[in-house]
Amino acid sequence: MTQKLYVGNLPYTVDDSALTHNFSGYGTVQSAKVVIDRDSGRSKGFGFVEMATAAEAQAAIDALNGMSVQGRSITVNLARPMESRSGGGRSGGDRRPY
Rank of each mutant, 00 (worst) to 15 (best):
K4C: 05
V7C: 09
N9S: 11
L10R: 03
P11M: 00
T13A: 12
T13S: 15
D15F: 03
D15S: 10
D16C: 08
S17W: 08
A18S: 13
L19H: 01
H21E: 14
G25D: 12
G25Y: 12
Y26H: 11
G27W: 02
T28W: 08
T28V: 10
A32E: 00
A32F: 04
K33I: 05
K33W: 00
K33R: 11
V35D: 05
V35M: 06
I36R: 04
I36W: 02
R38I: 15
R42F: 07
S43M: 11
S43V: 11
S43Y: 12
K44D: 02
G45W: 07
G45N: 04
F46T: 01
F46D: 00
G47V: 02
F48Y: 13
F48P: 02
V49Y: 05
E50N: 12
E50D: 14
E50Q: 14
M51D: 01
A52C: 11
T53P: 02
T53Q: 04
Q58L: 07
A59F: 10
I61H: 01
D62C: 09
N65S: 09
G66E: 05
G66S: 02
M67Q: 09
M67G: 03
S68L: 09
S68M: 04
S68D: 08
Q70D: 14
R72C: 08
R72S: 12
R72Q: 12
S73N: 15
I74A: 03
V76I: 08
V76G: 00
A79V: 05
R80D: 13
P81C: 09
P81D: 09
M82V: 13
E83V: 14
S86L: 15
G87Y: 04
G87I: 06
G87D: 09
G88E: 04
G89K: 05
G92Y: 10
G93Q: 09
R95G: 05
P97F: 00
Y98A: 12
